[in-house]
Design a binder for these strands. Structure first.
Lengths: 219, 219
DNA sequence: CGCTAACCTAGAACAAGTTTCAGACTTGAT
DNA sequence: ATCAAGTCTGAAACTTGTTCTAGGTTAGCG
């Protein structure tokens, strides 16, 4: 139990990094993503990451206390990027289930363009043990935010809707894994996503229109 | 249809093991489960497994080509055991969704009794790469069989039902992971299982009775 | 029995994640 | 400018999964 991992945990006031430190951090994450894109989880070797980022091995471990921490942070990074990208062109489906499925399929296609990177990030995410919980939780919240965005609700989500979203996330992660390990085809993943998204239809509160509404204006 | 223990691939005619070899194999699996029960994934150290099983390290690797292979085989073992146990007292719910949820919660409670073992097996399962696909697939088929059993269908499952089962499996695995890594409570897992099991209700073919039937005599 | 092929053992060796440490460099305050 | 505290570097060491080697054992067969 040495270092307090200063993650984005609840109320964690990460000591403000100097500019050079911020730059180091970004170099590390970039090197991580680069190596991951080449050969997936196994290709992200800590010594190579350190060398590619131009920092000493000890420094790498000061910034990210383990390989899994590093890759989960890499995923945070990519997810953030994807979130902003997705927000620019919101899904156009008629009901919430369609929109969520469309959004996830869009994300899936993005991952298909970098399957090795996807492999590294997803494997790290599911392999993470308790010591990485705060970071994994951040990823989970980001994913939840993306899905809720896609649903385009005009009110706070109900507990049932949150449950459905949780299940959708479960399916999303697990389906990715089966795809990455070659046990499911792309088509199969699509079917699974569409199947689970039907759960959203079960959570419609009012019998009239439910969550169907083309454009929930936000501001 | 008891799955053959030798999951070396499609049609792989695993050379029949001699009695001493079978005994070695069992000693190894037992040692693996034992160590896993103590301290989870990390506690299953190949050298220790070999010593506890009374075989040389090289022999251990001849039987199981990697730690992940070993743990996935351990899971096959446990699942088989659970499958026969579950069959003895089939779930009593009124509709398929209830029965499946009940069955999974029963399995979940069994895992709670050996959380470290569960940790080792589930982490191995999701961390497995392509080289372990055949074995992971066997586990997946076993899980599917358990769920289909619980549904108590009287006919071949429809494609939609199979999709629902796939999504249930996804949720099951992923929910286990969140529980094991301390990011979800037992209650939360229960909710997620119950939520995803509602998908089964969506696959009822006829509007009359659907899959509801108290006791579908097994086979 | 004695042969051969496959199997097993003990142990060294190798690979990659992680830890440690002494010394050089930055930073912030005085 | 100077000092103290904290940070970074380079390199070695340690851990555990995995591979390799040389020699002993077992099983089937004439």
């Amino acid at each position: 139990m040495t270092a307090e991992v200063e993650a984005k945990g609840p109320g964690a006031a990460s000591p403000p990094l100097t500019e050079r430190q911020e730059a180091r951090r970004r170099r590390i994450l970039h090197a991580s993503a680069q190596l991951a894109s080449r050969g997936g989880f196994d290709a992200v070797q800590m010594r190579e990451v350190a060398e590619a980022a131009g920092v000493a091995l000890g420094t790498l471990y000061r910034y990210f206390p383990s390989k899994v921490h590093l890759l989960v942070a890499t995923m945070q990074d990519q997810l953030q990027h994807m979130h902003t990208t997705l927000r620019k062109r919101p899904p156009a489906g008629d009901d919430a289930a369609e929109r969520v499925a469309e959004t996830l399929m869009r994300a899936f296609r993005a991952l298909q363009r970098e399957p090795h990177l996807a492999d590294a990030m997803v494997r790290a995410l599911t392999f993470a043990d308790r010591s990485v919980s705060p970071e994994v939780d951040t990823v989970s919240r980001l994913t939840t935010a993306i899905i809720l965005d896609a649903m385009g609700l005009d009110a706070e989500p109900t507990p049932q809707q949150l449950s459905a979203v949780r299940v959708i996330e479960h399916t999303w992660h697990s389906a990715l894994i089966t795809w990455l390990s070659g046990r499911a085809s792309i088509a199969q993943v699509k079917i699974d996503i569409e199947t689970v998204c039907r759960l959203i239809d079960l959570t419609e509160s009012s019998p009239s229109g439910g969550t169907s509404r083309p454009k929930a204006g936000g501001a």
